[in-house]
Design a protein around this nucleic acid. Structure first.
Lengths: 113, 113
DNA sequence: TAGTTATATGCCTGTCAAGGAATGTAGGAC
DNA sequence: GTCCTACATTCCTTGACAGGCATATAACTA
């Protein structure tokens, strides 16, 4: 593995990884559980978890044969910090914006991949 | 162009596009200005702007031969909404977190591409 | 209209990230 | 030790995406 560091932004570009973060935020989970929840194969989930681990977004502990993953939210501060000046930019017209959000929220679920 | 819709998360994965948003947030800019600021070629900037435009993150107006781009922040609400539950997750230990952020902030600038 | 400025877009190439299939590795029970 | 469960990793393929170069398109002026 070379010196390439994957930024939080890149990590979060992948919808399945965001979904994984949602799940491990709620509670610690094993790879198998995540795979079942996502209806994905174990190897692909493992690969995503590796990316998340290396980005510092999850931590893992071993419990018998299982590995349990939990959220480590610190790297998301970068995202929050980037977003901060944009919050000022949408200060007005919040009703309109929230309606926009509701329509955007459907996009990831509708997109085949 | 097929039905593929690029999510905000995917759009923001590209550091140059984030940089473009920073610039057009500050003030309206032409393609040429952005290209100069980014030290990138005009066609590549144009392509990024197309992605941003199609994601609804920028708006354009024509001024003589120039196109001036400005920020449209509404789609970022999706990002903010996604991030909201994670803010609760990092509530404690904020000093440590901010130090983490400072070190993260160097990553994009250091990474060759 | 021709000429100029500004930008969008098409074509091409190279890189990379995702998943599938197979297999290696780790932890435990008997 | 063998066998089982759980997961990580490798190898390979494929599609997406970024930039470079060339050119088409848009807007304006004389």
């Amino acid at each position: 593995m070379l010196d390439r560091v994957t930024s939080v932004f890149e990590v979060l570009a992948e919808p399945r990884r965001r979904r994984i973060l949602d799940l491990v935020r709620a509670e610690e989970r094993s790879v198998g559980e995540l795979a079942a929840e996502l209806e994905a194969s174990q190897p692909s989930v493992s690969k995503h978890l590796r990316v998340l681990r290396e980005a510092g977004l999850v931590e893992v502990r071993v419990a018998e044969q299982r590995r349990l993953y939990r959220l480590r939210p610190e790297p998301l501060l970068e995202l929050d910090a980037w977003l901060a000046p944009y919050r000022a930019a949408w200060g007005a017209g919040l009703d309109r914006l929230e309606r926009h959000l509701a329509s955007m929220d459907d996009l990831d679920h509708r997109r085949p991949r």
